[in-house]
Amino acid sequence: MRYNDLWRELAAIYGENEAKAVCRTVLDDLFGMSLTDIVCGGVESLSSADTQVLSCAMTRLKEGEPVQYVTGKAPFAGRIFGVAPGVLIPRPETEQLCDIVAGLTAALPHPAILDIGTGSGCIACTLALDDESREVSAWDISDKALGIARDNAERLGARVNFVKQDALNAPHDTDRWDAIVSNPPYICGRERSGMHSNVLDHEPHLALFVPDDDPLLFYRAIAGYGCHALRPGGWLCFEINALYANEMETMLGDMGYRDIKTIKDIYGKNRNTICRK
């Protein structure tokens, strides 16, 4: 088994450059193998047991499974988070949401922040680790996601209060949070044709999709909760579906929120919407 053979097996799925990058990620994450190690014959020098592990990993990759699930690791905001099938893989673009929340709450001595739909816990843990004065809580309806999020928090040393809670049936809290942050499901079924098969076939649909006739389902529920659960002046911060940015701003305005703003990402795409109680 050689490195060139490995990436060529994946080239039909990923293309040459990405196939090489995927193989290097697997070799690094599973065996601590650097590019120098690879060039010097590290793959050929693997033990029979490690060769079997690599063979199993390659089989999963050839079936279209995301490399993050195969290695059990995903980078986010300078840290490595554990991931597994059943939890959404953290995306680099979501790091911007953490930066936004941090900036909006920077002047508060001990801001209380809630992350709704925490998944792997990447947002909640990042906010808690970047400033230990923050009091961070996180909700998810999935027991599997909560288990992974708790494992990440424990391994990284993040103080986060995780709670099993359905965002569509939130409690009637009053003046509890300085900021609520969420990257909820926001992809409509009709958008599936434009998605990569490794996402459709492997990532949890519970964390991805909303009904075609109600694309703002989770945003409306979370914003409704925020109307009474946010403290006066508290912030609501969403990652959004760019297709519905205008509808999002209109809905938040109709619900009484102020200082509504949609923020573009580095690619010029509408990525996050913020507003204030």
Rank of each mutant, 00 (worst) to 15 (best):
D143F: 01
D254E: 15
V87Q: 11
G147Y: 03
D29L: 02
G117P: 10
S120W: 01
T174I: 10
P211G: 13
S34Y: 07
G226E: 02
T174M: 05
P184C: 05
L35Y: 06
S47T: 15
L46H: 07
R159S: 15
V101C: 09
A138R: 09
F218V: 00
M248W: 00
V181G: 08
P111H: 00
R271I: 09
W7Y: 15
R271L: 04
K20H: 04
A229Q: 08
V210N: 10
I263W: 03
P92K: 02
D143S: 14
N198Q: 13
I274Q: 09
I222S: 06
L236I: 09
G224V: 09
Y3I: 04
W177R: 10
P111N: 11
L108V: 06
A128P: 07
L230P: 11
G157N: 12
N169H: 07
Y3Q: 08
L230N: 13
I148G: 06
L27T: 07
T273S: 14
E191Y: 02
S34I: 01
N17H: 08
D212A: 01
E63W: 01
G121P: 09
N246Y: 01
R91F: 03
G78M: 04
R150V: 12
L216C: 05
H110R: 09
N272I: 08
F76H: 11
A245F: 01
V181Q: 12
S197W: 04
M195I: 14
L216H: 03
I80C: 10
C237H: 06
K73T: 04
I263D: 08
V163W: 01
L168P: 06
F31H: 13
E44L: 07
N4E: 15
D29M: 03
I180Y: 04
R24W: 05
L6V: 12
D151T: 14
R79M: 14
K73E: 06
G42Q: 03
L88T: 07
W177V: 01
G268S: 12
V39W: 00
R258C: 14
R176W: 00
H196T: 08
F238M: 10
T105P: 10
A128M: 03
V22T: 14
E93T: 13
K20Y: 04
I80Q: 08
S55Y: 04
P211N: 05
D214Q: 13
E203C: 01
C23M: 02
A153D: 03
G233C: 13
R24D: 03
P66Y: 06
R60C: 10
C188D: 02
A167R: 02
T25S: 11
V181T: 11
E239M: 14
A207P: 05
V87W: 01
A158M: 07
A107Q: 10
F76A: 12
F31V: 14
